[in-house]
Amino acid sequence: MGGEGSAMAAITSLKNNRSLTSKRREKGALGGSYANIELKEFPQATPEQLIEIKQRLKKEHREARIKYLVVFLLLLFVIVPLFWFLLQ
């Protein structure tokens, strides 16, 4: 019958995964507590800084859109004539 190799591979994979989870539990990688963690204090952004960040992000997005458009148009102007030439 066919499929014995794939069944054996599935059994082996399950066995290996089971052995890995037991090793993780022994090391305690998945356990722990956040009780003794100190939270960092970050400065609050002023409204002026937020406006500046918003403007900077808008400018960056606009520049990225222009770059994508230029690349698209260049590819379009190269590919369309190439197909036109190949189809004639």
Rank of each mutant, 00 (worst) to 15 (best):
Q55G: 06
S19Q: 14
E4L: 11
F83I: 12
E41A: 10
L87R: 11
T46N: 06
L57F: 07
M1R: 00
R62A: 11
L73E: 05
S22P: 00
G3W: 00
M8N: 05
T46E: 06
L87I: 11
I53M: 15
V78D: 04
A64Y: 10
L57T: 07
E52Y: 08
K67M: 10
K67N: 11
Q55W: 09
S22G: 04
E26W: 05
I79G: 04
K58H: 03
Q55A: 05
A10K: 13
R56Y: 05
E48V: 05
W84E: 05
E38S: 12
G28H: 11
V78Q: 02
P47S: 14
S6N: 13
S6L: 09
N17A: 12
L39Y: 10
F85K: 13
L50R: 13
L39I: 14
V80I: 15
E26N: 13
Y68K: 10
S22E: 01
E26Y: 07
N16H: 14
N16S: 15
G2I: 01
F42S: 11
K23D: 00
A9R: 04
A64I: 11
A10P: 01
N17P: 01
R56I: 06
G28W: 01
V71M: 06
Q88S: 10
I66W: 03
E52K: 07
L39G: 02
I37V: 11
S22Y: 02
A45M: 12
L74A: 05
E26C: 04
L75H: 06
T46P: 02
K40I: 07
R56E: 13
R62H: 11
E48G: 06
R18I: 00
L74P: 02
K15A: 08
P43H: 07
A35M: 09
R24E: 00
K54L: 06
F77V: 08
M8Q: 06
I79Y: 09
R65H: 06
A64R: 08
K54D: 08
M8K: 08
L73A: 04
S33M: 03
N36Y: 10
F83N: 03
L73R: 07
E60Y: 06
R24T: 03
L57Y: 02
A45S: 14
V71P: 01
F72L: 08
I79N: 07
V78M: 08
M1T: 01
S13K: 15
Q49C: 03
E60Q: 09
N17D: 03
L30T: 10
L76S: 04
M8T: 01
